[in-house]
Amino acid sequence: MASVDVLTTGTGPGLVVIPGTTRRARHYQSLADALADRYTVHVIERRGRGKSPAQGDGYGLDAEITDVLEVLEETKSRQVFGHSYGGLVALHAALRTALDRVIVYEPATSINGSLPGGWLPRYEKLLADGHDARAMVHFLHALDMMPSGPAMVGVVWAMQHLTSEGRATRELLPTVPPEFHVAVELDSDGGRYSAVTAPALLLGGGRSPAYLLEVLHVLSQTIPRAQMIVTPEFDHNAPDLSAPKAVAELIRA
């Protein structure tokens, strides 16, 4: 049995989905449902979430890759889809095992210092001091995904305390630093990804931060069998929130 919990739906060839930072398996239910007539979709509940193991003191990318490889083996799947940090995991899983296809949506892959990391110390201090809303705004603002300021902190605080979705996201905030430390420490010139032998579909959105799209361009020129599609109206959360059915159509094509 795989170490992590897995949400499964659909019939057909297996497709393993790897969620991004602060995301749970259930956030990809709409994506899975839209693919269910073509694939058996296995969405991993990554470490630090639900019934899956905690990240633990020795957390690193190897733990995530091992979980993916276990799910691939157990489900006999030959394709993976990874979103954001899950995209980084997917690319490294593709370096470790033969796949029929690897699909990533704006992977948290740092190339030549592209992924911001200077925000982490303040984020960790805010979190340790119990300022969860300020920590989350600082995190998302540093990644160019949210405006900053007291009004935004107030909105996030209300969400974190008054909505079930906000409370669930708040619970995952401690998982952010270990994952981003991994991503930043893996910074490279991108050359390692030339060893990805599987066909790669690289997806992104025109409303996403520029540094994420720049990485997609580098990967498209580095991975031997890569196709890149940037959809102008998509943002970074297209797979899980804003356009899961449309992302599913790109995967199905």
Score class of each variant (00 low, 15 high):
Val4Glu: 05
Val4Phe: 08
Asp5Ile: 00
Val6Thr: 12
Val6Pro: 06
Thr9Arg: 14
Thr9Ile: 12
Gly12Ser: 13
Pro13Ser: 12
Val16Cys: 06
Pro19Phe: 06
Pro19Arg: 04
Thr22Val: 10
Arg23Ser: 10
Ser30Val: 04
Ala34Met: 02
Thr40Lys: 11
Val43Leu: 08
Ala54Gly: 14
Tyr59Pro: 03
Leu61Ala: 01
Asp62His: 10
Thr66Phe: 10
Glu70Phe: 04
Glu73Gly: 08
Ser77Cys: 02
Arg78Ser: 04
Gln79Cys: 05
His83Cys: 12
Ser84His: 09
Gly87Pro: 01
Ala90Cys: 06
Ala93Glu: 02
Ala93Arg: 00
Leu95Arg: 09
Ala98Gln: 11
Ile103Tyr: 04
Val104Trp: 01
Tyr105Arg: 07
Glu106Val: 05
Glu106Lys: 07
Pro107Gly: 07
Thr109Trp: 07
Ile111Cys: 09
Asn112Thr: 09
Ser114Asn: 13
Trp119Pro: 04
Tyr123Ala: 11
Lys125Leu: 15
Lys125Ile: 13
Leu126Val: 08
Leu127Tyr: 12
Arg134Gly: 09
Val137Lys: 00
Phe139Trp: 06
Ala142His: 02
Leu143Gly: 03
Asp144Glu: 14
Gly149Asp: 14
Ala151Arg: 13
Met152Cys: 06
Val156Asp: 04
Ala158Asp: 10
Glu165Ile: 11
Gly166Gln: 13
Thr169Leu: 15
Glu171Gln: 14
Pro174Ala: 11
Thr175Tyr: 05
Glu179Cys: 07
Glu179Val: 11
His181Asn: 10
Val182Cys: 10
Glu185Gln: 13
Glu185Cys: 06
Leu186Trp: 02
Asp189Asn: 14
Asp189Val: 09
Gly190Ile: 08
Ser194His: 12
Leu201Arg: 11
Ala210Met: 12
Leu212Val: 06
Glu214Phe: 02
Leu216Cys: 02
His217Met: 04
Val218Gln: 07
Ser220Glu: 15
Gln221Met: 13
Arg225Gly: 00
Ile229Phe: 04
Val230His: 09
Ser242Cys: 07
Ala243Trp: 08
Val247Gln: 03
Val247Lys: 03
Ala248Arg: 02
Ala253Glu: 14
Ala253Arg: 14
